[in-house]
Write a protein that binds this DNA or RNA. Sequence first.
DNA 1: TGACTTAGTGTTATATTAACACTATATATC
DNA 2: GATATATAGTGTTAATATAACACTAAGTCA
Lengths: 231, 231
Amino acid sequence: MKHTYEYPRAALTVDCVVFGFDSGAAGLQVLLIRRGLEPFKDHWALPGGFVRLEETLDTAARRELEEETGLKDLFLEQLYTFGTVNRDPRERVVSVAYYALTKPVAHTTAASTDAAEARWFPVSDIPALAFDHAEIFTAALTLLRSKLTYQPVGFELLPPKFTLTQLQRLYESVLGTDIDKRNFRKKVLSHDLLIPLKEQHREGPHRPAQLFRFDPVKYERLKKKGFLFEI
Amino acid sequence: MKHTYEYPRAALTVDCVVFGFDSGAAGLQVLLIRRGLEPFKDHWALPGGFVRLEETLDTAARRELEEETGLKDLFLEQLYTFGTVNRDPRERVVSVAYYALTKPVAHTTAASTDAAEARWFPVSDIPALAFDHAEIFTAALTLLRSKLTYQPVGFELLPPKFTLTQLQRLYESVLGTDIDKRNFRKKVLSHDLLIPLKEQHREGPHRPAQLFRFDPVKYERLKKKGFLFEI
DNA sequence: TGACTTAGTGTTATATTAACACTATATATC
DNA sequence: GATATATAGTGTTAATATAACACTAAGTCA
């Protein structure tokens, strides 16, 4: 079925920059898919696709993410809309970019899904990307860094139970700085957002670490207030 | 001439929230136009319109602004893209929203242009708006408030030469708070961004005020660094 | 010339941030 | 089971930033 309009129209897509975090050496990761079709066939690209007329932009982003990577129910926010004239060699395409944060548990789920070839790459070493996706990725990383310093979004990247050291590694990895351990713990705990669990995390020949979870109610309140979470 | 596509496509528009500032009682203002056509004929709305295929989103925003209000060369940044399904009663329309800041000199120019009926309204008292423009306006005002506290964008709303009192009134008006005069001046001057002029501003039966302009080079540097300008 | 009105200026208390080193407690090994 | 090892966990102090506060200066106007 054909659709006809008085004036020419741009195609509208969504693209998602999905961040994951590995407390080990790998650090901050981004999820890419390999394109199966031209243009940029076999190139790596951000997951995304066309917006349908009956769905909102957010819905489209979530749908495409699930279709292409198997990930769902993740933290997702609009980033910026990219609309230069020749972004896509075929025709005018305007893309609403999103960034998403996901917990390690979801990671493995995604990796085992083979609906499409999807792979995690460390942000410090990503391959050449299709279209203007490198630019979108850079914008997302910049936003994540900035966001991390004034909103408590970091928890979205950690498993439900985590240690303070894991949280600190996350901040250090994303921001690319070293943080003083004592100052970090003081600051983080002062927000009264973390709930200590009865469990401990045991790993290796050393003292086990206290596990925490964050209080989702206080978390939502802080996010809306634009509360400063600077480290 | 008709244009035909395989799948249905949303129409793409830009809408602009233009802020102006009046150092007097009026304070922060927003520029609205009265719609001449259905839907929402005779309602007030944000200036904006359809994006052409051969222009970027930014270009479209600037073009529409000039066409509808006569304003050009103003500070303009993308805000958010609004894409709920029934924003427009006619058909699916996705709108990339921008916010713009303009100096008082430009104001009067705009007011005298009668390309369309355009009028300034104090942000504390705006009329009912067409479409979801009230939501867009609120998002823009929230962003402006937040931006003002961490980037030196306030100067975009002032004339090229201004006094420290005018700058303080601007901050107070936008943020809705009272600021201590001495602390404000200390902080603002400490950024080494303001250049004192040889001129003074005389008005009324009292001591004249020193005029300043801001250093555009340092200004750009601070903007890029995401430098904190908190008051 | 005196009343009026806004411009302009410093100090101190308080809060926040930054710098810094040792003890605690588990596992692994001998 | 004694010891080595590796990470967890903890307080104090100096430096810096913020917040609170009141008077003098310099014009105009009556």
